[in-house]
């Protein structure tokens, strides 16, 4: 969806328009959910709804265009995701690591299954590289916004993205798909 339309939707939502908010939600919720899958694993759904509740609460006070809104949205999502991770670490209900090992790519044909596999592969990266790859490459945020979200310098974000991509390229399942 074009930037202008999303900016209009953002303004409408800030005025209290439910349709504008729905447009925003439809265009951003999948990205938030996938990013949170990488960060918070199985608790991504909860973290995503908490993120949106936070957005609803503070949308009126938000100032900026749609690009700024994306940065704000993913900063909230990251904080919620890390909260979920911390809670999970405290309660020690760690999901089984086998979930993270991707199922065989060849057997995954259904829609969404490939996405799940890809996210699982990315989640297997070190945390900073996984986040950098998700925000920079998958979600398409620019370096400055990503650096703002992660609380790093832009150079560190670039390095983390590059290392993450290099590591993904060296992943056995991807290497096997190279010739396909």
């Amino acid at each position: 969806m074009p930037e202008d339309e999303l900016t209009d939707a953002l303004r409408a939502a800030q005025r209290g328009d439910a349709a504008g908010f729905a447009t925003l939600w439809r265009s951003h919720h999948p990205g938030v959910l996938r990013y949170l899958r990488v960060i918070a694993g199985d608790h991504a759904e909860d973290a995503a709804s908490e993120t949106w509740l936070h957005v609803i609460r503070d949308l009126q006070n938000f100032q900026g265009d749609h690009n700024g809104f994306r940065g704000w949205l993913f900063r909230i999502a990251r904080n919620r995701g890390l909260d979920e991770q911390r809670r999970r670490a405290r309660t020690r209900e760690t999901p089984a690591p086998p979930d993270r090992t991707a199922p065989d790519a060849a057997t995954e044909a259904a829609e969404g299954a490939a996405t799940t596999w890809a996210l699982n592969v990315i989640a297997g990266l070190p945390a900073d590289q996984a986040e950098a790859v998700m925000l920079r490459v998958v979600l398409g945020l620019d370096v400055a916004t990503t650096a703002g979200i992660l609380g790093k310098k832009p150079g560190a974000v670039r390095i983390a993205t590059m290392r993450g991509l290099r590591r993904l390229a060296g992943h056995p399942q991807i290497r096997t798909r190279q010739g396909v």
Partner: peptide, 16 residues
């Protein structure tokens, strides 16, 4: 890298 491209495409797939 075709495999990496596939992976990223899968991650960027339209919302289900």
């Amino acid at each position: 890298h075709p495999g990496l491209a596939d992976l990223l495409d899968a991650a960027r797939a339209p919302a289900t």
